[in-house]
Amino acid sequence: MKDIIFNVFILLTVIPCFWVALSSNIVHAAFSLLITLFGVAGLYVLLGADFIGVVQVIVYIGGILILIIFGVMMTQRGKLLPLSIQLPGKVFGAVLTGVILVALILTATRSLWPVAAVLEEPQPTSAAIGDLLLGKYLIPFEVASVLLLAALVGAVLIVRRSVRGE
């Protein structure tokens, strides 16, 4: 049963992912991305990372993706431009990424990972992650918060300037 759910989520993640990469319609690509992100959230949950899964749904799907869709809508006025580059470039990119993909898959399947012999039952992680964030990773955590703040202020500033500059 678990394997079936697992494989469903894998398909849910990977298939729309191709659509994101290959679709010729930016709106379709954006919605495929939504499904992919949702699939990844499911995989997180299956991995026992409940907290990360929830964060993925809230931040990625609720925040980032909505921003991207806004971006799509605000920049689609005027003529529609071809979404991708010409064929030779595509082939070149495909070959490059293909080789890297093969290398990655070979590494993933052939390496001897120091895997735990017996998998423990997943435990709720929120409390432990909270401990880590405010303990061992306090400084990165604070830096990330400053980064977010700076990014938000910077984003507002950049857009405002360009609007004013007109």
């Binding site: 930016i26 954006a30 979404l83 580059i85 595509k90």
Partner: peptide, 12 residues
């Protein structure tokens, strides 16, 4: 690598 649309690049 292959998108011409900046937002497409972001999605990648």
């Amino acid at each position: 690598l292959t998108r011409r649309n900046a937002i497409g690049v972001l999605m990648g």
